[in-house]
Design a protein around this nucleic acid. Structure first.
Lengths: 204, 204
DNA sequence: GGGACTACATACCAATTAGTATGTATCGTC
DNA sequence: GACGATACATACTAATTGGTATGTAGTCCC
């Protein structure tokens, strides 16, 4: 006899479909009907699992977007030599960024730009993701300064804000131009900046 | 006898109100009714001046957003020493960026992130703005390389893409965090990058 | 001043939206 | 196996949306 009810799976399918729909159209233009169609779930089921559209959006951020972001930048945050790690991760991210991702943009940045100014619930959740990314980089830089892989006069918080900002920004400009090459050029500039954070060679 | 009809002014008021509404809520969530309410213009008048909502949006981009952006970065593009000019403009922009602007985000970036992936008309128009900004910076850098104010081994196109990306990105992250300080930190990082573009001091 | 064109104004429409009310089948538990 | 709670399914609603049809008054030109 086949299993007829799998509430956890139903819920999971809903937030994953919602993530895609939101990535494509943004939260406010995401259509619940469209999500239901994609998942073959009914409206009754959706409103059983989520109180309203906003709660569904929050669940997407907490349960899909957050791990998605964290997993992507973990290598930098855990690295001994953050500059090497960052350059390596940047290269990998650059290679695996599909044309579709360029066209749709970074799901994190998309939501930030759409919702941060108009919904406190989204703002808090998204900011917590951005903050832990930024703080992770700053921490890695301080560790790098301790072990000598990062120059001592660099400001970890400032650099972290700049790095995160330029990554999201270059991704966004690549989306604006619908051109992968813009991302490549931007990341080359970032690589140059990262190199400048290495300690100066011994002169004597 | 008072003037009863001022079609040009009516049109201007509409696109300016639409610019504000779009800045606040994005294009798709911008409500025509709300724009009409703000301007005391009727629907008939609006649809006399614009064929549909999309054409209104295009007019906003071409006639309000484009000059708004161009005027803001003109000093860099025209400068003899682009690095000095950029640092100066950055400082000014930073000072004049209000809390409301942080909260709502850059109107250019907002629209790019919302519309580039889903409407070719917006994409082309917005991209033309981004491109002329980026190209202007690249041109200024080449000029700087010729007159010796920018190091010769820098890649103008790459740097321009990085500079524009990081400005928009840091602005976006400040919006995400709803914190002016993030913009300040990011722009400090950018200033550091710009300094690294100066020619190395003669060691001879 | 009269006709024609422009610049509006009003009222309406169809589609889509998030959300709800209510009914029913399945599931775990005793 | 009964019973209560969970997990759905169906049908509907109210509000908002962009867009249109049609009417009217100002404006310009001869």
């Amino acid at each position: 006899m086949p299993v007829k009810r799998q509430p956890d799976l139903t819920r999971q399918r809903l937030i994953e479909a919602a993530f895609e729909e939101m990535h494509r159209f943004g939260f406010r233009s995401a259509s619940l009907e469209s999500i239901l169609k994609d998942t073959n779930v009914t409206k009754g089921a959706l409103y059983h699992h989520f109180r309203n559209k906003t709660e569904l959006g929050y669940a997407v951020v907490d349960e899909v977007l957050k791990p998605w972001v964290e997993q992507r930048w973990k290598p930098i945050i855990e690295a001994e030599n953050p500059i090497d790690a960052a350059l390596n991760v940047l290269k990998n991210r650059l290679e695996e960024t599909t044309d579709e991702m360029i066209s749709l943009g970074c799901p994190l940045n998309n939501l930030c730009q759409e919702m941060s100014g108009i919904d406190a619930g989204f703002q808090e959740r998204l900011n917590s993701i951005v903050c832990s990314w930024r703080d992770g980089i700053a921490m890695a830089m301080r560790r790098g300064q301790e072990n000598g892989s990062v120059r001592a006069d660099a400001d970890p918080e400032g650099c972290a804000a700049f790095i995160v900002g330029s990554i999201e920004g270059c991704m966004g400009m690549a989306k604006a131009s619908q051109d992968h090459a813009i991302l490549y050029k931007g990341m080359t500039g970032l690589a140059q900046f990262l190199e400048s954070l290495r300690p100066a060679k011994r002169t004597h």
